[in-house]
Nucleic acid binder design. Structure first.
Lengths: 260, 260
DNA sequence: TAGTGTGAAGACCTTCACAGCG
DNA sequence: CGCTGTGAAGGTCTTCACACTA
């Protein structure tokens, strides 16, 4: 049995599983607060919004922490998941770009709790540098490398305008950071020892719009399977197609939805 | 060939493809702005940060819009993708919860462009109701259903504290909304004709922390495959394990990282 | 000839269903 | 008995590699 456990933890928890562990953790914390001490995969799955077989398989990647016929011990699971996610240490986070979004993030409560600590704020605008936000001084971006090293920042949140993001990204990487959460609407190019995760408002909205449109089609149009496009079978783009494109309030202009 | 095209568009573009279309669109818009009129799958793939075979397969789900030996016409592809995503109409979006985050979102530029229009802001706090943000009046949450119907809102952004999110969610659904972008750190439970997408800060950070920890282990510990847990092989949680848990600055307290 | 569109192979993920254990 | 842990089956997504064509 020890055999199987070490095998399980050995190398590599599937990425899909890693992405769900925080959900389980949150659900478990809620239960712990409500005084629940034991939970079945079924109940925990419901609380986390997943299928219970999936939950069991996910947990089995961490080890065999349940008790057959009983369920999982809430506190113990919390500890194991926290440990696996690296939340038993705390991580110094820097936020770069203190515009609307950066400010909101700095003040965001759920940040500070749970193993993350905002350790530095940066901006390029002399107007903002020196401001006091969420108990922190906004530093000038020139200090980036020095401060990151000094305060041992290991995770950086990029909340700059799109145009600045790649440059900022390169600089934090050269300062030794390998984990980046990017709010700017650009694809950052990095070498593959660097982890980038991206949060992108307009992409999420566009995905919703796609499905919303589908639903609308299904209602009115029914399964009509309407004609393909405005008939211009060859590639030449007839002026009126582009015209109709232009007349839509903003199909193309300024994608650079600034992240600040 | 027309046969194949209609088949392709017929039912269902894979979800993974839908999630990437906005990326392609953004890359294409950048190119169009720079005056590029034609692009190969290879170049577009690089710009969007994906593999070119994947890009071609993705685009093939929309139809056969490329020219062999040449590439894709930038403007035409922009039109087709915009159309597929439903961006040739514009969508009225409401933001609920005008705290830090809600404010930042309301002021977020990339929102307004590109087919989305913030049509209403709501909050429960009488203190904020009546405020003027980004050219909009903040309405009281009591007006929710009426205003949503009146202004034909079809996408709702929830930026309330966690505790309020489910209730708000139920109300917007009862008002006929079926597309929700949720920033509150809770799993919303909805019937499956409703699309919910979720943006969750602390989950993203936790995923980064996981990988960061792995990288750190690999460095120092090397491939040591250290001993499992603090030796307590049975489920009984030895007091010192819990003790060490408690001593960590915040492994558990207040997960309710309020979204405002 | 350069580059798309796509079968086929394979990696990854989910779900089922049940053996096996506490 | 009840519930976990997991083989096996079935999906979905990615990637390769090349036939095909403008």
């Amino acid at each position: 049995m020890t055999r199987r456990l070490s095998q399980a933890r050995e190398r590599g928890i599937p990425e899909a599983t890693v992405a769900r562990l925080p959900l389980y953790l949150r659900a478990l914390n809620g239960m712990a607060e409500r005084g629940v001490s034991t939970v079945s995969s079924e109940d925990l799955a419901v609380a986390a919004g997943v299928n219970s077989a999936k939950l069991r398989k996910d947990l089995s990647h961490l080890g065999s922490y349940g008790t057959r016929g009983v369920g999982y011990d809430v506190e113990y699971l919390i500890y194991q998941i926290s440990r696996e996610l690296g939340l038993t240490q705390d991580w110094a986070v820097a936020i770069i770009g203190v515009g609307n979004l950066g400010r909101a993030l700095a003040n965001y409560g759920g940040f500070v709790s749970r193993g993350f600590r905002v350790a530095a704020l940066f901006d390029a605008d002399p107007e903002v540098v020196g401001d006091h936000i969420a108990g922190l001084n906004v530093e000038h971006i020139d200090e980036l490398e020095a401060v990151i090293r000094r305060r041992d920042v290991s995770i950086v949140v990029i909340a700059t305008p799109a145009a600045a993001a790649q440059q900022v990204c390169d600089r934090v990487i050269s300062a030794g950071v390998t984990s980046i959460l990017n709010f700017a609407p650009v694809v950052l190019s990095v070498s593959d020892d660097v982890d980038v995760r991206k949060v992108d408002l307009s992409i999420e909205l566009q995905i919703l719009a796609f499905h919303e449109q589908r639903k609308a089609d299904r209602m009115s149009g029914g399964p009509v399977m309407a004609e393909e496009w405005p008939k211009s079978v060859d590639l030449s783009i007839s002026p009126d197609v582009l015209g109709s494109l232009g007349s839509v309030p903003s199909v193309r202009p300024t994608d650079d939805g600034e992240a600040r």
